[in-house]
């Protein structure tokens, strides 16, 4: 594994290895080792062309916990706003000796382009590209599911995960469907037909347009954010109607099995896709997802740039 652009880059073995590594790192951190010397002298660049709080901070913290030097580069206030191309930025980072570049970009395929054009030798980690993928989010979700529902197992055979809402605009959904199904889980995608991407029937998941009947089957339910900033048409009549059909409220949450967990990749629109009561309720593992994000990103960084060159 040289880059992490898409969950399709990962074999099942590699995905399990990342989750196993995260589990060991969790244990080390829990015992009080907050700062590990592992990536001392390595340079990690956070290259963010799109706004982000938790992903950028999470990667930054993960790299710092492993003692890497971290440079954060956001498009605002950099030479990108003067019109510098992705290629020239990549060449600059190459000249500065970056070992890993974490890229978040509004264009689908930006991370792939960085990884496969030969502009830069660094390992590329996709932190979200357009509506394409967000592989570390899927890994942290898988890690959260493993901790709660399959702590002593490697694969997710027999588990059913529901992904609900705006699948069309969601890179989180794309990455999660790929990863969770590769790990053996059954994935059920639920949402209005207008928010299902073209070709979704080819994906390794079941598609439903109605939430209520699916609830008792789900071991985990992942609520997607309604991405109003990406919506340039009308996809549903009103926010109220969307919440009524697809929002997770107390009554719907009570129809989930007792062991089921409620997830959300953040940032939440409280009152739209999830009510505040459920988001803060006993089934919610939403803040734990954030904590797990740091651990999983530490695992990815360690496995990508912790060792010597192997290619």
């Amino acid at each position: 594994m040289k880059h992490l652009v898409s969950v399709a880059d990962l074999t099942k073995t590699e995905a399990i290895r990342i989750l196993d590594t995260a589990m060991q790192l969790d244990q080390v951190t829990e015992h009080g080792a907050k700062k590990l010397p592992t990536l001392r002298g390595r340079t990690v660049v956070n290259l963010f062309y799109e706004d982000s709080t938790r992903t950028r901070l999470s990667f930054e913290l993960a790299a710092k916990r492993l003692s890497a030097d971290v440079i954060t580069f956001s498009a605002k206030g950099s030479s990108v706003s003067k019109g510098e191309s992705l290629k020239d930025t990549a060449l600059t980072l190459q000249a500065m000796g970056a070992d890993a570049v974490i890229i978040r970009h509004f264009a689908s395929g930006a991370a792939h382009q960085m990884a496969h054009t030969g502009w830069i030798k660094a390992h590329i980690i996709n932190a979200g590209d357009g509506t394409h993928e967000h592989p570390t989010q899927a890994l942290l979700d898988a890690y959260t599911i493993r901790r709660h529902l399959a702590p002593h197992r490697q694969d997710f055979e027999g588990l059913t995960v529901g992904i609900v809402g705006d699948v069309l605009h969601s890179r989180v959904a794309r990455s999660n469907i790929g990863l969770l199904s590769a790990l053996g889980a059954k994935v059920i995608v639920v949402g209005p037909p207008t928010l299902m991407p073209v070709g979704v029937e080819e994906w390794p998941c079941e598609i439903r347009y109605q939430l209520d009947d699916s609830l008792p089957e789900l071991d985990a339910i992942m609520m997607l954010r309604v991405q109003q900033e990406r919506m340039n048409g009308s996809f549903f009549p009103s926010v109220e109607e969307y919440s009524r059909e697809y929002g997770l409220n107390r009554i719907r949450a009570s129809r989930l099995p007792d062991h089921a967990v409620v997830m959300h990749p953040g940032p939440m629109n409280r009152g739209v896709e999830i009510t505040a009561e459920v988001a803060d309720g006993h089934r919610s593992v939403i803040t734990e997802q954030v904590a797990n994000g740091v651990i999983v990103r530490m695992a990815v960084l360690y496995l990508l740039i912790g060792g010597g060159a192997h290619d």
Partner: peptide, 8 residues
């Protein structure tokens, strides 16, 4: 290459 971690 990066080695798998063992338990602490």
């Amino acid at each position: 290459p990066a080695k798998a971690l063992a338990r602490t």
